[in-house]
């Protein structure tokens, strides 16, 4: 159980290891507060959808699996949206469109497909919490770097000295890509992971969902990174270099 929880935080961290959910990771990490808000919202949706999907896993016919998951996830996202709009309007404004885009966040649909649809409710809930916390921590780390060096503050509190020497580009879009790149490189170096790991459907659990293991796709455009597409995330982390 505890191991199940921890895997989402370290070994299978959705952002830094599985390279999922890059859009919100880059977009909302301009401040630590936003990152926390996003992480909490995604965790709530993940928890809710994992529990419901796991509970309904025997009822949902295979054919309408994906549409059903999407509806359930979209339902939870809308609930979270409305609750945040009502009780934390500032955060709601700051996250903007990315709040509703949790619907298409690969982490959520990926966990539903890979884990919740095959496991018991309790396990799915633990898995959701682990992944959610892992997502939140990754956002938190990234936002801390960007906010401290980009705005000279942390959680909105000004840091003396640093606030006089800010690097504003870090809180803009180029800085997002840059910090994320550096962060992954650090993770690579620390874990001594075999590098050369690439982005693409290989690391994305929704590859199976979105049709990436459809034969035509592999043969045509995805030839270059089709290796391992359709595999679950559990066995992709050590994909070999070229």
């Amino acid at each position: 159980m505890w191991k199940n929880f921890l895997k989402g935080i370290i070994r299978e961290n959705p952002v830094l290891v599985l390279l999922l959910g890059t859009c919100p990771t880059l977009a909302v990490t301009t401040s630590v507060a936003n990152a926390f808000g996003m992480g909490a919202a995604a965790t709530a949706v993940l928890l809710g959808s994992n529990i419901v999907i796991s509970a309904l896993r025997r009822m949902i016919p295979d054919k309408v699996r994906i549409p059903s998951y999407i509806v359930i996830i979209a339902g939870f996202v809308t609930v979270v949206e409305m609750v945040m709009h009502a009780f934390v309007p500032d955060l709601y404004e700051a996250l903007g469109v990315f709040l509703s885009l949790i619907v298409v966040n690969c982490i959520i649909l990926g966990r539903a497909e890979v884990y919740a649809s095959k496991n018991r409710v309790l396990d799915s809930a633990v898995d959701a919490l682990g992944m959610g916390v892992g997502f939140t921590l990754a956002l938190f780390a990234m936002a801390s770097i960007r906010e401290i060096f980009g705005s000279g503050s942390w959680m909105g509190f000004e840091i003396p000295i640093l606030s006089d020497f800010t690097i504003p580009i870090l809180v803009n879009s180029p800085g997002g890509f840059f910090v994320f790149g550096i962060l992954i490189a650090i993770v690579n170096a620390v874990t001594k992971r075999k590098t050369g790991r690439d982005f693409g459907c290989a690391g994305c659990p929704s590859a199976a969902v979105c049709g990436a293991n459809d034969g035509s796709l592999q043969n045509a455009a995805h030839k270059d990174h089709a290796a391992g597409s359709g595999k679950g995330p559990d066995d992709t982390a050590e994909e070999g270099g070229k």
């Binding site: 390279l19 580009i169 879009s173 180029p174 800085g175 997002g176 890509f177 840059f178 994320f180 790149g181 550096i182 992954i184 490189a185 650090i186 690579n188 170096a189 590098t195 050369g196 790991r197 690439d198 982005f199 270099g241």
Partner: peptide, 20 residues
């Protein structure tokens, strides 16, 4: 690039320059 930058990190950093 340096070993730990291979793959995704170097791609992201070049994306950063294009974004710039």
């Amino acid at each position: 690039p340096p070993k730990c930058f291979e793959g995704m990190p170097i791609t992201l950093i070049s994306a950063s320059i294009v974004a710039l």
